[in-house]
Design a protein around this nucleic acid. Structure first.
Length: 481
DNA sequence: TGGGGTTAT
DNA sequence: ATAACCC
């Protein structure tokens, strides 16, 4: 069992004391062994004790713009925006200097900066590919990598840190220095084990950013802290291409620096509105508000969750994202009002999706159609969807030829469409989306089947993740263990 | 606002 | 199926 206070001993062995004693004798407490030794009973893969975790959050600088600049280096020194429909969804720092902001309309952006170069970013393919390369690179440091959108990742590096700590002891090395910024310019206390862990974390974060730059050509920020919330918040404190570590004593300053509850990741638009009705706006307001009233107003679960967030507390583990749970393709437009138009759009979306799913290698068992109806009031939130299982005889034809599946699937999607829209009445859509979900591995690799006891021959190491770009015949080739 | 994603209810 | 959240 884990003893209270275990591992919270004063680490004499890390005093800047050349030639000091490196055997941690644990005087007076009899129970603590070497720090690197993990307990045997630990079944939960993430680090259990939760208090001494070391989490890195990474956030690429203006990701789409960076990818475009890698593809076309001419764009490097010009103000560049990435456009989706009539929005500039992101832009490089040249553009930001001239006043361009994320999600600015193309009209406003051109007005502010007529020299702005725009590239279309509606096709996410290259961004998605680069995004997974980043995640895979980070997985070399630790398997616990959680994606957040295309350009952010959380990495739980607790175990790596413990290894390096143990290694430091063996080497008799007494020097550890922080990489990058320390939040609040707080002084590192070499007698505090958590400080040492976080400092080692900052070195690992620097290595991650170095690897991202050297191998992928990408720059970005990193934040190091003891949980996901804090690592994400501290990540943003020094912005382009820098990193920051948060020491525990500055936690309250960090959350306190947020001027409004909506800035807390996890508290979104809706919850913020409800909090405002209660007269709460600052993070401090939320911290000091009556828990009982908050629970009555928002429900116990949300109330307790967001109040913990307001203190910078976040127990949620970093969970490996692995391959995506769903693949979708969508398109928005001014107006789509006839069934033939709808069918055309759906065919286009479906063709793209089929392409992607065959590269993924798994098979979808569920298909969903989502629409957005035009309405002047409540403009941007009225999506409706219908989904259904994909008949098994269609699923089986997925990997093989391509076009046996498109006709039946279009048929299914049009039926789903008619469940939402009475086609004899006039309608006005502004978005269509098709989604494949309930993705299952190939039958031959399904656990419990014969194929599970077979192993793939080539390629030698693809670690079962995401077999993008691997031809289907290779995926299926097996041999006995 | 785009064109994606996730989890909880 | 929707609603909330994230980018």
């Amino acid at each position: 069992m884990e003893l209270p206070g275990e591992e919270e001993e004063e680490p004499d062995w890390l005093c800047p004391e050349p030639g000091g004693l490196w055997s941690h004798a644990a005087p007076g407490r009899g129970s603590s062994a070497a720090l690197g030794a993990q307990s045997d009973h630990d079944k939960t893969v993430p680090s259990r004790s939760t208090a001494h975790r070391v989490i890195v959050h990474t956030d690429l600088d203006c990701f789409y713009a960076q990818v475009e600049m890698i593809h076309n280096p001419e764009l490097r020194d010009k103000p560049l925006g990435v456009q989706q429909k009539y929005l500039v969804v992101t832009c490089n720092y040249e553009a930001r200097k001239l006043g361009i902001q994320k999600c600015m309309s193309v009209r406003d952006a051109k007005e502010k900066c007529p020299e702005l170069v725009l590239v279309n970013g509606e096709d996410l393919t290259q961004y998605r590919e680069m995004s997974y390369k980043v995640t895979e690179l980070l997985e070399e440091f630790s398997p616990l990598v959680e994606r957040l959108g295309f350009d952010e990742n959380f990495v739980d590096i607790t175990e790596l840190v413990e290894k390096r700590l143990a290694q430091l002891q063996r080497d008799g090395c007494s020097k550890v220095s922080v990489s990058g910024h320390v939040y609040n310019n707080q002084t590192v206390n070499l007698h505090d084990v958590m400080h040492i862990r976080l400092v080692i974390g900052s070195q690992i974060a620097a290595e991650m950013r170095e690897a991202m730059y050297n191998r992928l050509g990408l720059t970005g920020c990193a934040g190091v802290a003891s949980n996901k919330l804090l690592s994400k918040l501290v990540c943003g404190t020094f912005k382009p291409n820098q990193q920051t570590v948060l020491l525990p004593e500055s936690c309250q300053d960090l959350v306190g620096s947020l001027d409004h509850v909506i800035k807390v990741p996890g508290i979104g638009y809706k919850t913020t509105k409800r909090l405002e009705l209660l007269g709460l706006s600052s993070v401090r307001d939320l911290q000091t508000f009556s828990p009982v009233i908050l629970e009555k107003e928002l429900g116990v679960s949300i109330a307790q969750h967001i109040q913990k967030l307001s203190y910078g507390e976040d127990d949620s583990p970093v969970t490996s994202s692995g391959p995506p749970q769903s693949l979708s393709d969508e398109d928005s437009f001014k107006k789509c009002s006839s069934e033939v138009e709808v069918k055309k759009k759906i065919e286009e979306l479906l063709a793209n999706l089929l392409d992607r799913i065959s590269k993924d290698g798994r098979k979808p068992h569920t298909i969903r159609l989502t629409i957005r109806k035009f309405s002047s009031t409540n403009k941007w939130f009225s999506r409706e969807s219908r989904q259904c299982p994909i008949p098994s005889h269609i699923i089986q034809k997925f990997g093989t030829g391509n076009d046996d599946v498109v006709a039946p699937l279009v048929g299914i999607l049009m039926k789903l469409f008619r469940k939402m829209i009475k086609v004899e009445m006039p309608f006005h859509l502004t978005l269509l989306s098709v989604c494949f979900s309930n993705l299952k591995a190939l039958p031959s690799l399904t656990k419990g089947s014969m194929g599970f006891y077979l192993t793939r021959l080539s390629p030698p190491s693809n670690s079962g993740k995401k077999m993008e770009g691997v031809p289907q015949d290779q995926v299926n080739s097996c041999s006995f263990v």
